[in-house]
């Protein structure tokens, strides 16, 4: 016969963190819509636009040399912003965040686990897209630390904005808005359409978007072999501070 005699206690925080990260990642990878967003769309765009001349590209090298950095930026946005906003919005709606609030898992550990889950997914995305791009003849330049720095800061900026949306809007509104923003930024953020195609006034506004800073920064390193793209990193840094700050201030758990 089972005894229910009390023996309360939290698991060691490292074990909780590991368990939560693994569980969140498992839930994400099982979600078909999320995979469409994070894997299928960037892959299809990369393959399609590399092969077919429907968008005119910019700069030196082959079409894939322009497209690959943009789609890496899109991958980061799809996971850190769109996927995280929608996922977290529904977790809030279904009381998952509320129930976890009563568990021994501290809130900072939950957010760390979410970040861990985003980073794991991004590693998988970057690996997949890089392999596909390389088979399409991609020849990237540049230094790895600059690329990693851009990806990390881009993740921070998009996570802040995604969590802000998830923690303030209704889940359905988040779903609609996050998808809309994804499409708008895909088209107007220098991902597949060069910003040089836009009129100059519009262009200087678009250049301040986090997606433009990320795709431009990645492109200047990977396509042009530039050093460290400080201005892009600066823009991403500002977005990260604003987004994470606002999320911390306005996020509602229920």
């Amino acid at each position: 016969m089972t005894s229910y005699s009390p023996a309360p206690g939290a698991a060691p925080v490292g074990r909780m963190l590991l368990a939560q990260t693994a569980f969140e990642t498992k839930m994400l990878l099982r979600n078909g819509e999320q995979l469409l967003l994070t894997v299928v769309i960037p892959t299809v765009l990369l393959v399609l636009f590399s092969a077919v001349d429907v968008v005119s590209v910019d700069g030196p090298g082959k079409r894939v040399d322009f497209l690959a950095p943009g789609l890496l930026a899109l991958a980061v946005m799809s996971t850190a912003f769109t996927g995280q906003a929608i996922g977290t919005g529904f977790e809030r709606r279904y009381g998952v965040l509320k129930r976890l609030g009563a568990s021994p898992l501290p809130r900072w550990a939950l957010l760390t686990a979410k970040t861990g889950c985003v980073l794991i997914t991004e590693v998988l995305q970057v690996a997949l897209l890089s392999v596909i791009a390389l088979t399409l003849g991609w020849s990237p330049h540049g230094n790895l630390p600059a690329v990693v720095g851009l990806l990390v800061l881009g993740t921070a900026a998009f996570s802040g904005l995604g969590l802000l949306m998830a923690g303030t809007l209704r889940a359905e509104a988040t779903l609609a808005a996050a998808n809309l923003v994804f499409i708008l930024l895909l088209l107007a953020g220098g991902v597949v359409v060069p910003l040089s195609k836009f009129p100059s006034g519009v262009r200087s506004a678009l250049e301040l978007l986090p997606i433009s800073a990320l795709s431009d920064g990645l492109r200047s390193v990977l396509q042009y072999g530039a050093g460290i793209p400080w201005s892009d990193l600066g823009i991403l840094g500002v977005w990260a501070v604003l987004g994470l700050g606002a999320a911390a201030r306005f996020f509602r758990w229920e």
């Binding site: 939290a10 279904y94 998952v96 509320k98």
Partner: peptide, 15 residues
């Protein structure tokens, strides 16, 4: 938190 068990009226589980 570790000492108290909570059952909400509804929800609380990943969909």
């Amino acid at each position: 938190r570790p000492r108290v068990g909570v059952m909400l009226q509804s929800g609380g589980v990943y969909a």
